[in-house]
Design a protein around this nucleic acid. Sequence first.
DNA 1: CCGCATCCGGGGCGATACTG
DNA 2: CAGTATCGCCCCGGATGCGG
Lengths: 222, 222
Amino acid sequence: MRSYGQYCSVAKALDLVGDRWTLLIVRELLLRGAIRYTDLRAGLPGIATNLLADRLRALEAAGVVAREEPGPPIATTLFRLTPRGEELRPAVEALGRWGIPLMVAGPATGDAFRAPWLAFPVEQFLADRSPEGPPVRIAVHTDEGAIVIESRDGRIETFPGTADEADAVLSGPPYALMGLFSGRVDLPRAESLGLRYEGDREALCRLLPEHAAEGNQTSDIS
Amino acid sequence: MRSYGQYCSVAKALDLVGDRWTLLIVRELLLRGAIRYTDLRAGLPGIATNLLADRLRALEAAGVVAREEPGPPIATTLFRLTPRGEELRPAVEALGRWGIPLMVAGPATGDAFRAPWLAFPVEQFLADRSPEGPPVRIAVHTDEGAIVIESRDGRIETFPGTADEADAVLSGPPYALMGLFSGRVDLPRAESLGLRYEGDREALCRLLPEHAAEGNQTSDIS
DNA sequence: CCGCATCCGGGGCGATACTG
DNA sequence: CAGTATCGCCCCGGATGCGG
């Protein structure tokens, strides 16, 4: 990209990661770790393939991304963030936090979706209300992938992929999941938006924000 | 800007502030508060005037910037961040922190500079080593503007402009100031880079990082 | 199939000139 | 002072090709 030509740390940062798509590439690498070019591309719906190659080269030159050629069990190239690239996490997370209200407002028509993107809202909204309790694991399944939400010692973490032993399994359209996570709708209302769940309801409500977890008792004195 | 079309909070944020120059405009508004179009432009060397107008319109539509028409003592328009725009501060500061190593490395030839941009490194590197002491105020003068660094109750703040009653006054080229603030060089070495100071040396060394403040005693037992 | 390179059309961007 | 107007250019988007 063309440099801003300003002796300012914000401008210098944007000289390296201010290009279109660049911070979204960093997002994918933060969420997915070491990943192949093709999977990276699948996580960035809409990007042109030549742009992805260009950006990866530029990020490599900037010391943000490293290319990894594992020996022969694996025949492919992996891309990963360098430690310096990992240091972009606070910046990407801050942008993600700022964008959450725009996401709660609902998807635009035609918006693409990938399950790992839920990590930002999850880590923003969910909190363990019984931090001393045993670790809890929630699987989230969508049409476009799955993530696992784990809480141990009161800390919430998310990972892409499925879990063998989950205490509960959530599935449904992204907007219903977002409503539930953000506390904008409660569980019954989320179900009317298409959400389904099975497993330990207590485990689920332990992590959900107060409003979303309301009515978690099958019979409750109103 | 063209939307990324992704139902992700980072992508949604970048849909609004990911355009070229946009986050630098937010930077200026964060550093300077309510400000006129012309001063905004002066704080963004290199921007094309039509782009600034376009971006301000887009930011206004996005609810990030508000246009203010003060009554007739003042005959001009002021631009300021809305509360929603102020919430971008963590994101801009995180990017600024990430960019600081690039700034410590020194300016590129031809880089423009404005004094308020020092706010990010100052708030990153400086800390009050005598938080219980009386408030201290350092004026920083450069060829391209001045800022004031204030510490009270252990908290460091910076403001654009000059101070009437400063405990010390620093002046010199940006690179020398950055070296001193970052602790890369000590006071004598900063002077050899063109830095000048007058006033209370103790007050200065109270805020500087350890290495920069070395040799702050006129006669010291080595 | 994976990881690109090439080509081409359109629009965002940069620089300058001009105006109410 | 606060923009608008204009015009190249290059970045970006989308499609296709291609070597390993």
